[in-house]
């Protein structure tokens, strides 16, 4: 029974790696600004305003190509959050694979949690203000 459960897990790991590979291949080779098969933001489509995620697909494309500064111009919050997200995701995945229980202490700080939440809201509002310097927060506002 244990062996069966193990192979189930290897299957899942393989699937995750495969999907990750597809994701990377897609965003590396195709620029969301130039291809219409990428999903646009519903909020932006409906209101014309920017949500906190607007620009993130274009940012990821540029980051995969090595242009981190270019990515920053499309979505600064995303680029700044990426190290923390990658670290946190790695811990979650490694915990799952190796059945360990490492916890990222920062994630348990209420100051961090609500600070980040407040930051996201603030960012949502500020990046829609149509004057300098707030235009720097909008996709490719620079």
């Amino acid at each position: 029974m244990a062996l069966l459960q193990d192979s189930n897990k290897y299957l899942k790991i393989g699937l995750i790696l495969f999907l990750g590979g597809v994701f990377f291949w897609l965003y590396y080779n195709y620029n969301p600004a130039e291809n219409s098969f990428f999903i646009p933001c519903p909020f932006h489509y409906a209101t014309g305003l920017h949500c906190p995620g607007c620009g993130s697909q274009r940012a990821i494309h540029l980051i995969f190509k090595g242009d981190i500064l270019g990515g920053f111009r499309f979505n600064p919050l995303l680029v700044l959050t990426l190290p923390i997200v990658i670290y946190g995701l790695s811990i979650t995945i490694l915990n799952w694979v190796f059945k360990t229980k490492y916890r990222f202490k920062l994630f348990y700080s209420k100051l961090f949690i609500f600070g980040y939440f407040g930051l996201a809201i603030l960012y949502w509002v500020l990046r829609n203000i149509d004057s300098y310097p707030f235009t720097l927060l909008a996709p490719s506002g620079t």
Binding site: G53, S56, T81, I113, A120
Partner: peptide, 10 residues
């Protein structure tokens, strides 16, 4: 929290 952050931003 990592999933919460990803959901919020993306």
């Amino acid at each position: 929290l990592v999933w919460a952050i990803l959901c919020t931003v993306f």
